[in-house]
Amino acid sequence: MGPVPSVTAPQYGKAKPALLLADEFFLCGLDDMTGEQRLEPQALAVGLAAAVLGELMLSRHMIIEDGLLRVADVPAADELQERVRAWARKDHSVEAAKDWIMVLVARDIAELVKHRMLASGKVVRTTRRRLLRKPLELYVPPSLSTAAAAGVRIAGNLSVPRPLSTADLLLAGLLRATGRDREILSHCEPGVHEELERQIRTNLWPSAVALIDNATEVLVTAAVTPLF
């Protein structure tokens, strides 16, 4: 890969708390009554992989150009983000964003995100015993209403309708890719789906749109490929 084109250097010094899209995505997948993860493992992993790449895009460490992932040579603040950034920066055997999502899935991105959330105290690990079945391992926030917060925010803004913040819009796009949007927007008017689509189309920058499309394609391919 040649010199990285058109990646704006990240802004240092501004000690803005890192926005952790993947954490939000994980929480959005939780059932706010039981704390169980409602996304099946593959959808969760693909969503989280795309969300981590999304974090790096929001902090301007990455862009997608012609379907390829381009990475800035500037360290990211968050440990997990930096790990992923370093992988993608140093390893040029895979360049397509779609392939990188699959690589991250294969490298257990879901576990890494869960550990990051555990370490920062956003979730605690509990087990729930079940009759005649293996105990269920749960990662739940101390208060389950936290899990619902992003979804409520997105649904509320789309219902008005009011523009979502860039991060929320990307989150909503990834939730839609996994099918979780139906649950989150279930109590809204049907028009919110078109509103979401309109906002994604007009308000997101091309790399983010490409990220959502790539995540969608990975999930569609998984859905139509027979398992054996």
Binding site: R38, L39, E40, Q42, A43, T178, G179, R180, R182, E183, L219, V220, A222, A223, V224
Partner: peptide, 10 residues
């Protein structure tokens, strides 16, 4: 054309 979130299947 949608997958079910709980199964990932169409």
């Amino acid at each position: 054309g949608r997958t079910t979130p709980r199964t990932g299947q169409p």
